[in-house]
Amino acid sequence: MDALTRRVLKTQEPVPTGGMEKVRRFFRFYGVQILLFLFVVYVLFALSRLGISPKRISEGFTQGKVFLSRLFPPDFITRWDDIRHDMLESLEIAVVASIIGILLSLPLGLLGARNLMPSVVTWPVRLFISLARAFNPIIIGIIFVKAVGFGPLAGLLTLSVASVGFIGKLFIEAVEEISMKQVEAVRASGASFLSVIRFGVLPQVSARFIGFGMYQFDSNLRNSTTLGIVGAGGIGGTLFAAYQRFDYRIVCAIVLLIIGLIILDEYVSERVRRVFQ
């Protein structure tokens, strides 16, 4: 008697006779184990495909010590003018892109909501929004750099598109969750379409919209610090240039500044959120 049958017998249920039934029982008992086994096999396979081995890692750690020693102390002085200018540029790109993104998301969010608009309208809007969201900003950045050349304009366009992708989606979801009863009441008073939106829809979603905007600004700020790596303006360009020249102490200074900027932003946005709640 095999182990499986013994376990089946213990359950006081009739021993399976049909082949299919046997297979089903097998999975019911060993399903989790099989999944785990497959998982481990996959991990080992993936590790070997990527050429990751303990030796590789330990070599890396020795190398890492050397690298760390070359990072410190950070050098803020040598390129300070570039750094200051580019940090500000990152911030400015984030501000403008967030505002443009929010302004565009408002109408797109209303147009994409299936409870307000016919599918002829919502379908293309939703496709555009999911396309804007599917690609990492860096990829959109590469395309815009090719289209409009190096510089902050490419970054600005990139993050505007990314913002539409993100806020647009959240806003559509928020609009689709509203109570249509309130909308119906405003319609019944003979209000124009604009007034229906203004009094029936917006009061129900406006509080959440501010949160989306804040969140998107945080995200845009993070991304605007890296877009320079592909030439789309901001501090990332200076960072990458220093990295390629092996000026690791400058790299370290810039990264510390980025971390500082982001922590500061998180603190501020936490405060602002509290004011609005």
Partner: peptide, 18 residues
């Protein structure tokens, strides 16, 4: 079917929107 987040007065004034 009141607009919950608006004041009572504004809800009445919705009747004037037309």
């Amino acid at each position: 079917n009141l607009v919950e987040r608006l004041t009572v007065l504004e809800n009445l004034l919705i009747g004037r929107l037309g």
